[in-house]
């Protein structure tokens, strides 16, 4: 099958700075692909090049197998949702959603039907006559989504669409966008810096750093097996332990602390408590541990308080303990 879109050796340079550096990436048809990374990693620039708002310095962009590198945005037929929503403030919700259809000379009756259909898909059928200013942020977000979907785009591009919403709404909208994607069968490219969002929503996640792809794969492939320290850190692995066999990482929730010699199979290290803090259901404990090479590494362990022995209120800084990274939780970083 022809991929929905492809980046072939795409570079975006601003002077000496490479925002995107020789990017090769395939966007599969009907899937939700997430470009994930910290700010400045090139994810938004890549999306803007795909949409046609930025021209690559080098390389090619294919849409539906055809070279689209030189096409202006209006000739690409893609639907884009901007971080700021970018609704037309002088038009009603219905006219916003119908804007692209009007340009495509869709007859009025069909246009109306498709506007209604798109608005109902996002659950805003009843607000068609309002002006954008009269809507909440979440509703504006949905209008922007409906406007992009109404033109039946080849791809739906979402640039940090949830970052302006409050935390609860953001979580709701993740499921909402997945539902819309499933109902429409659209190919979606989502840009985000939020790893939870990417893990929850993606079919494929693409981790980027400094204009380069660090790792690509399904969330359940990438999360348990980060390819390198950067990916591991970005996904919330906080403990890095150098050993003779290479660098290992373990998540804070899986690092165990025992006051006696540990017996769990895995990596057992001697350590000294540096901090111990109450965090509701958890206890957050800092440890200076001696790595197998003799080096002292700072580690963090998040312990569930209900799993501690009765009466245990925390550790005292200076207390000597042993920490264990159990074998199944240990991830070897190959790069």
């Amino acid at each position: 099958m022809i991929p929905a879109a492809e980046f072939v050796g795409v570079t975006q340079a601003y002077g000496d700075f490479l925002a995107v550096d020789n990017l090769d990436l395939t966007i599969e048809e009907g899937k939700l692909t997430t470009l994930l990374g910290p700010s400045g990693c090139g994810k938004t620039t890549s999306l803007r090049m795909l949409a046609g708002y930025a021209r690559p310095t080098a390389g090619k962009i294919l849409i539906g197998g055809e070279d689209a590198t030189a096409l202006p945005p209006e000739k690409r037929g893609l639907g884009m949702v901007f971080q700021s929503y970018a609704l037309f403030p002088h038009l009603t919700v219905a006219d916003n959603v119908g804007y692209g259809l009007k340009l495509r000379k869709v007859p009025a009756a069909e246009r109306k039907a498709r506007v209604t259909e798109a608005l109902e898909l996002v659950g805003l059928g009843h607000l068609a006559a309002r002006k954008p200013k009269a809507l909440s942020g979440g509703q504006q977000q949905r209008v922007a989504l409906a406007r992009a979907i109404a033109i039946r785009p080849k791809l739906l591009l979402l640039d940090e669409p949830l970052s302006n919403l409050d935390a609860r709404l953001r979580v709701q909208m993740r499921a909402e966008i997945r539902r819309i994607q499933a109902e429409t069968g659209l190919t979606v490219v989502l840009v985000t810096h939020d790893q939870d969002e990417a893990l929850e929503m993606s079919d494929t996640m693409v981790l980027m750093r400094a204009g380069k792809v660090m790792q690509t794969g399904a969330p359940d492939e990438v999360f348990p097996a980060p390819a390198n320290r950067f990916v591991a850190e970005f996904l919330g692995y906080e403990n890095f332990i150098p050993t003779a066999e290479g660098l290992f990482t373990v998540r804070p929730e899986q690092l165990q602390i025992a006051s006696a010699d540990a017996t769990t199979p895995g990596l057992n290290l001697d350590g000294v408590i540096t901090s111990s803090a109450y965090r509701g259901v958890d206890l957050v404990v800092g440890v200076d541990a001696s790595a197998p090479g003799g080096e002292t590494v700072p580690l963090i362990s998040v312990l569930r308080r209900d799993a501690l022995p009765a009466g245990h209120t925390g550790f005292t800084p200076g207390e000597r303990i042993s920490v264990t990274a159990p074998a199944p939780a240990l991830v070897h970083l190959s790069e």
């Binding site: 046609g52 945005p73 209006e74 970018a86 037309f88 403030p89 804007y99 992009a148 033109i151």
Partner: peptide
């Protein structure tokens, strides 16, 4: 971005 949105929806500059 408002102008860009219009372009993306099919409007010439």
């Amino acid at each position: 971005a408002i102008e860009e949105a219009a372009r993306g929806l099919g409007a010439s500059p």
